[in-house]
Design a protein around this nucleic acid. Structure first.
Lengths: 132, 132
DNA sequence: TAAAAAGCTCAAGTGCGCTTGAGGTCAAGA
DNA sequence: TCTTGACCTCAAGCGCACTTGAGCTTTTTA
């Protein structure tokens, strides 16, 4: 039979607290089975999913956005198109975020390496950025 | 005399709503002067600062962290050392974030370009990542 | 078998980053 | 002058991502 374990074990394997795991489930990101008595049971795929969620978080996605990235949850079977659309959009946003982080990294590095005392001094932000 | 303007003008120049500008001030990120009557007055340096804040936000910093990046606010005069320590730490965190975003970008791109239907299918997360 | 450990649900609380609203003030123009 | 619009303060509210706590049940293990 397949390897199954409880919420405590999943917590141990992912570094997430059980409360967060339950919360993700409430948002539809995780779908444990239940054993008699009501306790949640997970398999290895839950570990993969949890890692995906953590990665998405680290990449700046909200949990709602992340859940949209896992559309198998919505009962669709041929979801390739929808998924691709969503993922493409997210990819664009991600690349914008990456650019911002890279810019900030440069600012920080410049600030650290140069004799001025504050980010304000380094004229690195004065690009043509109006609006968010 | 130096070019000075009110909160509405700063809002226009930065794309930030006045409420957010006041909020940043409450957190010690902005330090407008006041004219008789109590209204806030800003100069061009406030625009630069506001852009820095926006950039930091886009790079994933909290406002608290961002404020630590502008230590001139804390009355210190020779802050280079402290600043450099902080900025170096932030830089490391930023680079970790960048790596995560890059990983997610790859996952998304892979998912978009390959025939599988979900992120779970692509074995891209199964690295040795435990804990956050 | 009995006590401890792990889990369950549900409601409320927390911190962040703002926004909204009430109620009042200040400044410029018709 | 007087009205309009920009601005002021302060308190409360909101969405997100969780955490905490109460009160109860299920497993495990000594």
């Amino acid at each position: 039979m397949r390897e199954e374990f409880g919420i405590g074990e999943l917590a141990k394997r992912t570094g997430l607290p059980p409360s967060a795991i339950r919360y993700y489930e409430a948002l539809g990101l995780l779908h444990p089975r239940r054993r008699d008595g009501g306790r949640r049971t997970y398999g290895p795929e839950a570990v993969a999913r949890a890692r995906g969620i953590q990665l998405a978080k680290a990449a700046g996605f909200t949990l709602k956005e992340t859940s949209e990235l896992y559309p198998s949850d919505t009962e669709e079977t041929t979801l390739s198109e929808r998924w691709r659309t969503l993922a493409t959009r997210k990819l664009r946003e991600l690349e914008a975020g990456l650019a911002a982080m890279e810019a900030m990294r440069l600012k920080l590095k410049e600030g650290i390496d140069c004799p001025c005392t504050s980010l304000d001094d380094c004229p690195l932000i004065q690009g043509p950025r109006e609006q968010t």
